[in-house]
Design a protein around this nucleic acid. Structure first.
Length: 304
DNA sequence: ACCGCACCCTGAGCGC
DNA sequence: TGCGCTCAGGGTGCGG
């Protein structure tokens, strides 16, 4: 069986909008139209906003009708009107795995015995959710090394506080919306880009990249941006995100090798992770500062 | 509104 | 060589 979708789990992998969209497109084929026959999880944890026990009861027998994305969230629509919410966090990955159980993971040396026993299904210790289906085909595995990901079940007609808080998707937000949202904000413009309630889907990497493309200094007070600059920034975001989705696809198909992080998306980064390297536009060394606890990269010459 | 900080978790990288 | 320690990293929510 072929692994249909997988993304590198290296420390450098951080699912933002493009990675989540690429995942959605791949996983959609595995998920939509199929009926949940079994739900395996690890023990209750921060990861499960809906406790594993309840999650299992809610999902069994449900058919997935649609897989939607908003910002960094994946939303599986179920045939009874309820929804399954998935967030990949920092290291989450959705993988289509062979339907036949693979051989058990080798016993780990570390970790108390009780912890090991909590892993109630076959697979490595970082796979926290496995969905099997009635119809033939692969299972869906949610693997997350850091466990910053989230799984939640939302009843039919219920309002999800998490989804409700999100601003427009970063691919759809308009320059005017960004401009309006920044009027009362004196924080750095990058902070606003990372604010999921203003626009959804941008993380640390693409914030830096878009600001570079738009030639706007990350630390500029948000309310100092003009309408024109807001338009430019939104256009830059769209360009960077779309391009990353396109190359993300190639990352996926490259991932026959275990080393998924070498797929190439990071080759497209213009400033992120390139502190000290010459700016691709003017050659000035890229500067790195910490902004709101996040590493921030910019060209001190190009970005005003 | 906004800032600083703790929390979630593991692996990498460090010093000894 | 190996142990044990610290901390990065994104998103979120808290208190001030």
């Amino acid at each position: 069986m072929v692994v249909l979708a997988s993304l590198g789990a290296s420390p450098g992998f951080m699912p933002e909008l493009p990675e989540v969209e690429v995942t959605r497109r791949q996983i959609e084929r595995v998920l939509v139209g199929r009926t949940v026959a079994d739900v395996r999880t690890t023990a209750p944890s921060y990861f499960f906003l809906t406790p594993p026990r309840e999650l299992r009861a809610r999902l069994l027998g449900r058919r997935v009708t649609r897989l939607e994305r908003h910002g960094k969230y994946l939303i599986g629509h179920l045939d009874d009107g309820s929804r399954l919410l998935l967030h990949l966090g920092m290291t989450g990955q959705l993988v289509a795995a062979p339907a036949e159980p693979t051989r058990p993971a080798p016993a780990r040396r570390a970790g108390p015995r009780s912890e090991r026993r909590a892993v109630a299904f076959v697979g490595d210790q970082h796979t926290h959710l496995v969905l099997s289906f009635r119809e033939p085909g692969p299972r869906l595995c949610f693997r997350d090394v850091r466990k910053f990901g989230k799984v939640a079940w939302i009843p039919k007609g219920a309002v999800s506080e998490r989804l409700d808080k999100l601003g427009p998707d970063a691919l759809r937000v308009t320059g005017k919306e960004l401009f309006d949202a920044t009027r009362s904000r004196s924080v750095p413009i990058k902070t606003v880009l990372l604010d999921q309630s203003v626009l959804a889907g941008v993380g640390n990497i693409y914030a830096d990249e878009a600001l570079f493309v738009a030639k706007i200094r990350s630390t500029r007070p948000a309310n100092a941006l003009s309408q024109r600059e807001s338009d430019a920034l939104v256009a830059a975001l769209r360009k960077v995100l779309r391009r990353s989705i396109a190359t993300g696809g190639s990352t996926i198909s490259d991932f026959v090798r275990p080393d998924g992080s070498d797929g190439g998306y990071q080759d497209h980064h213009l400033v992120y992770g390139r502190a000290g390297e010459p700016c691709p536009r003017c050659g000035t060394p890229i500067r790195r500062v910490v902004l709101g606890g996040r590493s921030t990269h910019y060209c001190p010459h190009c970005q005003k």
